[in-house]
Write a protein that binds this DNA or RNA. Structure first.
Lengths: 200, 200
DNA sequence: CGCCGCGTTGAGCCACGTCAACATAGGTGG
DNA sequence: CCACCTATGTTGACGTGGCTCAACGCGGCG
């Protein structure tokens, strides 16, 4: 759990499992196309269901989650995947072709837990929803602080089922109450319940 | 897919896999307790996350879905499961102890799809949300009509993140516009887009 | 420089939440 | 059987949180 995450992959000239870097805003795959399943090593991925009248938010994948598993069954992706933060992906179930039952079970349990998290982001008042989303997206750094790569307003609005305007107001409120420190447009620090939490 | 659903289980005196009948309102298992995983043969199950301040809706399991899979990993249930319609359950992965990869993959894909369905029930206007929930809960009968076992207002409100009052109004509106025919308190017929659908 | 996408903030309005009264169904005991 | 009680569902009146519309600042890019 220390700084052993970044294995010297580049030094050994791309070993068996290589990490794919995806930049924010980039589409990872489109619905209906062919491809493999991926595991999210870091970052955040937005999944969308494509309907006749457009796309609607259908799920969120964070560190450790697997996306595109359905392609192993149906031969094509069911959803569209889009990076809402800079991501690192690695192929899933390509090295060990025989899917261990425990690995699959773990993935299933994580998916159900994640689904519950996302569902909770659509209940309660706007400010609290946006705050919870920030906490969910944040990753604990070595010094214990929680760092967040802030997505665009469009994405945050789609996830929380609020409008961009309302999310913007909530983010401003978060900053004013000291629960969120912004460093530039994309980076920030979140504080779970920094005193001002009770101050509505 | 015909009338072969009700196998003469009672006649043959409970074969290898027995179906467990659960009545509406009954709690299937509590969070933190031990037990096995189940597959929903028919009916509808509500999953709740237990927090310090109460329970919050965390997922929905319908025909074919698996609940409590996490117990195979952690030894206890993560959520609470409650029947919101009369259900038939069967043990999952107890007969063939070696979990086939394809079966697990299929379960995973179904879970992600179901999660997206439920998420969609929390977007859009109240009337449309309740209508979509009814369509989701309905099962196609032999004659092609869609029959629904209507849950209590509390459950429908928790799923759609509306209040009981608003759900009640939406249900009344559904009935007035002819999209829902009620037979008694619990049973009804849903019509996907019966003419009046365009009439806002 | 002009254009465009993104984020921010204000003003007004409406869908839904809240509160309240009442109707109905189911259960329990006499 | 009825009297009574409670849980559940229905409907009306009213307030408000978030949506809509609109204006503006800012940064990136041709």
């Amino acid at each position: 759990m220390q700084a052993v995450i970044a294995t010297p992959a580049s030094a050994t000239a791309a070993p068996t499992v290589q990490a794919h870097k995806i930049t924010i805003g980039q589409r990872i795959y489109a619905a209906g196309t062919e491809g493999i399943a991926w595991r999210v090593k870091s970052g955040a991925v937005r999944l969308d269901r494509i309907t006749g009248e457009g796309r609607s938010f259908a799920g969120l994948a964070l560190q450790g989650d697997v996306i595109g598993a359905e392609t192993l069954l149906f031969g094509q992706y069911s959803f569209e995947a889009c990076a809402i933060a800079d991501c690192e992906l690695e192929p899933w179930l390509s090295a060990d072709k025989a899917p261990s039952g425990e690995s699959l079970l773990r993935t299933l349990a994580a998916a159900e837990r994640r689904a519950a998290d996302v569902l909770a982001l659509r209940a309660g008042e706007a400010f609290e929803r946006v705050r919870q989303l920030c906490l969910l997206l944040a990753r604990e750094r070595d010094d214990g602080r929680r760092e967040i790569a802030i997505p665009g307003l469009k994405d945050m609005a789609a996830i929380t089922n609020l409008t961009e305007v309302t999310v913007s107001r909530a983010m401003s409120h978060l900053r004013r109450t000291g629960l969120l420190q912004r460093h530039g447009r994309r980076l920030g620090l979140v504080f779970p319940d920094a005193g001002a939490a009770s101050a509505c």
